[in-house]
Every structure is written in structure tokens, then in C-alpha cells.
Design a protein around this nucleic acid. Structure first.
Lengths: 123, 123
DNA sequence: TTGACACATGTCGATTCCGGCATATATTGG
DNA sequence: CCAATATATGCCGGAATCGACATGTGTCAA
């Protein structure tokens, strides 16, 4: 007897739909890049990149759900355009690291200044 | 006859090891955040965050492989520290969209003006 | 109205990814 | 040498992800 009583894998933290994850996929970044020049229909993106139409549509869906892209219907086409303001989370996150880096540089700077001071005392 | 000749799924673009993918995982970002205050041993990160030690070690490995983190041996511990310079690809990529954002600044400006208008209405 | 076009969505198989557990490796202390 | 500590790594199962196909949905044109 004594069934192994395996606990096994646990549900992951989900959050499958944030900006960080969205830009984690290279093809998704290509789609975004294709939209930098301006509003485009799905077919135009398919032509520009070398991806299938369903593939592009699905990536657009993900990008839309995280707000990086907006859609507008025009006749039987759907025109997508960037919404760069929704890159803010990424931007803020990056800013943290720049701040951390600068703070540490400041500390190093203070440390060097103190070193100089001690050197002056020694002389 | 005529065997179905199923083509099926194709190897994905791999690239499982770039900066974009590395920061795509929320836990990995937590590990990075834990290092903002400075160099830390693995155990300290495990204590700070609520993650198992192997989990932290594995995430650190990914982060190290993309250069976001560096390791230094000290006795039987390994001290990890940020390497913010390797966030450059992200930074450059974002810069592209800032340009797109600037091109659309007029719209943001209009939005802010509308916000001000609503604030005025509320007061 | 019917067919063609543009796009979205559902399904499936394969692959990747992630976390839990167990274990290996290296360093220190007794 | 041996035990304890600190960390890395291997293995496994489950779940998420991705792309290829097939199909559904809405819109225009004749």
C-alpha cells in the first residue's frame, strides 16, 4: 500500500496577460513594430511580416487585451493602431533600475569623497 | 490511399533566452526587485520573497544567462547583483515607441486638457 | 441573395515552461 | 574525516503556449 501521495504541480501565478508577458514573444514584438508606421489592417500586417493570418489575429488579440493596441472597424477590415501609453508599466519598471543604479553610483561617489577626506587627514 | 500527410506543429522560434522573455515572468521580476537594494546571497532572496530555494536558483540562472545578473562566490555562498546595463535592449526597444508616442502627443495633450476640464467641473 | 473577401475563433498536437521534490556538489567547522 | 550549511541541478507532472488547419462571422459587391 502506501500510495505515493504525490502533491505535484501547482497552478502558476497566472497573470498571463500583462504587458511584460505580451512583449515577451518575439512575434508579438514584430506585430507591434509593424504598427509603428501607423494604423494598419490585419491583412497589411500579414503581408508585411511572414506570418499566417490566424497567427497575426491571435497575437493582436493578446496585444489588445493588455491595451498595447486598439482596434477600429472600417468596412470589412479592422484597423489596428499602437497605444504606446500602455507601455507605462514597463517604463516605470525600467525607471526603478535606473534609479537604483544612479543611487548606487551616488553612494560610490560619496564613498570616494570620504576616501579623499581620509586621505587628506592622513597627509 | 492518400495518407493524410499531416504537417502539424512546428518548432517555435525558441529564443527562450532573451531579456524580454526573462522579465516576462513575474517571479523573475520579483527576484530582480529583491536585488535592487544591492548584492544578496541566494538565501537572503529566498527569505525576502516567498519562494523555494530551487525556484530562486533556477530563476537566477535564467537571469544570469541573459546577463541581467552577475554572480560572485564568497565562501559557500553566492552573491548575486544586478547588471542593469543589460537592460539596454529593452531600453532601445522602448525608445522606438516613445517616438511614436511623441508623434501622437497632441492626442495625449488633448486628453490632459479634457482631464483638467473634468477636474474643473468637479470642483 | 449569393459569393467573395477580411477577419476572428475553435481545435489539436507538440513543445516549452514552471514549480515541487529529491539529490548532487562544494565549503566550512569540529 | 564527518556533519552541517549553501546552492545548483535533475527529474517529474501538469499547465500554459504556440502554430497549423479548419471553420465561423460579418460585410461588401454583383
Amino acid at each position: 500500500m502506501s500510495i505515493p501521495a504525490y502533491i505535484g504541480a501547482v497552478a502558476r501565478s497566472s497573470t498571463t496577460s500583462d504587458v511584460f508577458n505580451a512583449i515577451g514573444d518575439a512575434h508579438r514584438r514584430e506585430v507591434l513594430d509593424a504598427l509603428i508606421s501607423g494604423e494598419k489592417a490585419v491583412g497589411a500586417i500579414v503581408d508585411d511580416l511572414s506570418m499566417s493570418q490566424p497567427q497575426v489575429s491571435k497575437h493582436l488579440r493578446v496585444l489588445r487585451e493588455v491595451g498595447l493596441v486598439r482596434c477600429r472597424k472600417e468596412g470589412r477590415r479592422r484597423l489596428y493602431r499602437l497605444e504606446p501609453a500602455h507601455l507605462e508599466p514597463l517604463h516605470e519598471w525600467l525607471a526603478n533600475y535606473e534609479r537604483a543604479l544612479n543611487d548606487r553610483l551616488d553612494r560610490v561617489d560619496g564613498y570616494l569623497k570620504e576616501l579623499q577626506r581620509h586621505q587628506g587627514e592622513l597627509q
